[in-house]
Computed example of a mutant assay.
Amino acid sequence: MRRPSSTTQGYGTAHRSRFRAGVLRRDPVCVLCKSAPATEADHWPLSRRDLVAQQLDPDDPARGRGLCKPCHSSETAQHQPGGWAAQRGPDY
Score class of each variant (00 low, 15 high):
14 A>Q: 12
71 C>Q: 14
72 H>K: 01
42 D>M: 04
82 G>A: 15
80 Q>P: 00
9 Q>V: 07
90 P>G: 05
27 D>Y: 08
66 G>E: 03
43 H>A: 05
87 Q>E: 15
56 L>Y: 02
55 Q>S: 08
50 D>V: 06
89 G>T: 08
22 G>I: 08
45 P>D: 05
19 F>H: 04
1 M>L: 10
54 Q>H: 12
76 T>R: 07
1 M>K: 12
10 G>D: 02
36 A>F: 07
37 P>I: 01
15 H>F: 13
91 D>F: 13
44 W>H: 14
46 L>N: 03
78 Q>A: 15
9 Q>K: 15
57 D>A: 02
40 E>F: 06
82 G>I: 13
26 R>C: 09
27 D>N: 11
61 P>N: 06
32 L>V: 14
8 T>R: 15
73 S>K: 02
63 R>W: 06
44 W>M: 02
82 G>Q: 15
56 L>W: 03
12 G>R: 07
42 D>L: 00
9 Q>S: 15
88 R>W: 07
26 R>I: 08
65 R>T: 03
92 Y>F: 14
74 S>I: 02
46 L>V: 01
60 D>M: 04
49 R>G: 03
60 D>C: 05
30 C>S: 07
60 D>R: 05
26 R>N: 12
73 S>A: 10
24 L>T: 10
21 A>K: 12
84 W>F: 14
33 C>E: 10
21 A>T: 13
86 A>I: 09
52 V>Y: 07
17 S>W: 10
14 A>H: 04
29 V>I: 15
26 R>A: 13
92 Y>P: 11
89 G>F: 07
31 V>A: 10
15 H>E: 00
58 P>G: 01
83 G>N: 13
9 Q>F: 08
67 L>A: 09
10 G>N: 05
